[in-house]
Amino acid sequence: MTWSFWKTFLRTVAGRAYPRLIGVWREKSWLIFDVLFPLLQVSAYVYIYRAIGAPPEFAGFAVLGGAMIAYWMNVLWSMASQLYWEKETGNLQLYLIAPTSRMAILLGMALGGLTATTVRAVGVLLVGTLLFRVPLEVSDGALFFGVFVLTMVALYGLGMLLSSVFLLWGREAWHLSNLFQEPVFLFSGFYFPVRALGFWVAAAASVIPTTLGLDALRQLLYPRLMEQFRFLSVKAELAILAGLSILFLFLARLGLRFFEDLARKEGRLTLRGQ
């Protein structure tokens, strides 16, 4: 790969990330809705915990889960479904004829989406923490940051993989994204420790990076309480997340090539309103 390839690659990444970054500030009222909407759900779960007399740390579980949901929703609707939207608006052809790497386009989407979503997730975390006086104390800041970063790499790697799979679909893409909400909230343990599902179910759910990421982050925030609820040790979860990151990025590269070829052969790349 030449210098010119990498230059184009990086320019594509920056070019695709740009609209997502600028979009956050273009319509500022979206930020209010993006924080308010997940916060409504989080608040309901906090009150459910209060109604059954849960310790205050469980409110922290719900708030942290609500913040992490912002990333999962971004992966579903702005990564996995993105090429479907582009097909519907007639932009997909432009992407495909552009003299650049498709992986660079997906990477730009991921980086832009990740940064924009972080603004929302921080909003949910801050407002939720202050509103419900949630105790938050990170026992190991560096490890916490490491777990978060690896979770995001693996999660957005999964988003890139799903994006290539969704390339084949029409309205199914929209409905599948819709379907991957509540069931994933359940199996990833967004609102309760995933160990409650049992070891093997939690192990199967670990294919979604937020399952291990949330468990590890909760262990670092509430070490004492999580002693009885933890799924695996933080180090083991960190190692699995690193493995998932590499696996998903590799599969995304393969998947993109395979599904683009298939969609080309079946004439699905330009189908709209399907």
Partner: peptide
């Protein structure tokens, strides 16, 4: 957008998952 059988499963999975979240919250704490 899909076969009737798949549509039926789709219509059921989401609400049951939503209810199961509450079930596990209760099982852990209540």
């Amino acid at each position: 957008w899909t076969e009737p059988f798949l549509f039926a499963i789709y219509s059921v999975i989401k609400p049951i998952a939503g209810v199961l979240i509450l079930v596990f919250m209760y099982l852990i704490v209540a």
